[in-house]
Computed example of a mutant assay.
Amino acid sequence: MPHLATNGINLYVEDTGGPYPPVLCIAGLGYDEWFWAQSVAPYLRDHYRLIMPANRGAGRSDKPAGPYTTAQMAADMLGVLDALALDRVIVVGHSLGGFIAQELTLAAPERVQKLVLAGTSFGGPQSIPPTPAAMAVLMLDRNLDPMELIRRGLETAVAPAFLAAKPPMLEALIAYRLTTPVPPEAFQSQLVAGATHDAAERISAITCPTLLLAGELDQVVPPGNVELLKAKLPHAETAIIPDAGHLFPIEKPQETAAALASFFARPLEGVPA
């Protein structure tokens, strides 16, 4: 799909099309549509229409000067839905994408049929922060040698067993990072958006069916945040992907896709669909 004009910028959007229920997939810090295309999309695309934008500052999307906010990035996503004439969709957000998904749902609840908050929190001081090791990686100078950034990042982004096994997906991830670098200024602008996000006192307004999904060994957004989210969203369903870190859709794509498909396909008790 070509770029779509939204909120004063152009976003690159992959759309699998088809007469299927639409799912808006919002990636995390520094990632674009590749994140979904290489993880859960092969398992879901025959049953769901996957709309996978590259956020502002990432991939082939525009990279305007920052800083960015998650509300601003949510407005970008609403513009994508408008451009595609989609009134109501399932929304899946991972990490920073989860923050954006929250803001989208709070701003336009009538547009969200179901919501998946994956590897994320409600942000702010009430949430559980990254581990010290993960925080150190987030604060690294983005002008460092690319392989050094990738090596340091993977140490905290995935489970040790994934690194030790060296599966083809790990090689694909490294190749992607080398060929699709995020300019330091754009990375910083996205990082600020995540660091300033705080929906702790607002997220309870979300009433659509919600799945809280996390990796058991996540160091970037520790899985304890699921219980904090659950306290704010008592009707939400939870699922933990075992033996996986922050990039659990990449590490365990089949298991992640199964959790998503199960949630997409059924209503939740006591919550209107």
Results as ranks from 00 to 15, higher is better:
residue 99 F to N: 04
residue 262 S to K: 05
residue 78 L to W: 07
residue 178 L to I: 09
residue 135 M to E: 13
residue 112 V to S: 08
residue 93 G to P: 09
residue 30 G to I: 05
residue 233 L to V: 09
residue 183 P to N: 12
residue 31 Y to F: 15
residue 256 T to D: 07
residue 132 P to F: 10
residue 47 H to Q: 12
residue 120 T to M: 04
residue 172 A to C: 05
residue 179 T to I: 00
residue 141 D to I: 02
residue 30 G to F: 09
residue 182 V to F: 08
residue 104 L to D: 00
residue 149 L to Y: 11
residue 195 A to T: 10
residue 11 L to D: 00
residue 176 Y to Q: 14
residue 133 A to Y: 13
residue 161 A to R: 15
residue 218 D to Y: 11
residue 183 P to K: 13
residue 132 P to N: 09
residue 71 A to Y: 13
residue 19 P to L: 07
residue 187 F to E: 01
residue 125 P to I: 01
residue 155 E to S: 13
residue 33 E to R: 15
residue 196 T to M: 10
residue 185 E to L: 06
residue 238 T to V: 12
residue 217 L to G: 02
residue 204 S to P: 03
residue 81 L to E: 01
residue 76 D to F: 09
residue 179 T to A: 15
residue 78 L to N: 10
residue 247 L to N: 07
residue 145 D to T: 13
residue 40 V to K: 02
residue 32 D to F: 04
residue 105 T to F: 05
residue 248 F to C: 01
residue 145 D to R: 15
residue 67 P to W: 11
residue 211 L to S: 01
residue 36 W to F: 10
residue 235 H to N: 14
residue 71 A to E: 14
residue 75 A to Y: 02
residue 206 I to E: 05
residue 71 A to P: 01
residue 192 V to N: 02
residue 173 L to Y: 12
residue 174 I to R: 15
residue 217 L to E: 03
residue 49 R to E: 02
residue 215 G to I: 06
residue 19 P to C: 01
residue 180 T to Y: 11
residue 94 H to K: 09
residue 10 N to H: 15
residue 25 C to N: 02
residue 128 I to D: 05
residue 206 I to K: 11
residue 147 M to E: 14
residue 26 I to Q: 01
residue 209 P to S: 06
residue 226 V to W: 04
residue 248 F to I: 05
residue 197 H to M: 12
residue 249 P to A: 04
residue 109 P to I: 04
residue 31 Y to A: 14
residue 30 G to Y: 09
residue 105 T to E: 01
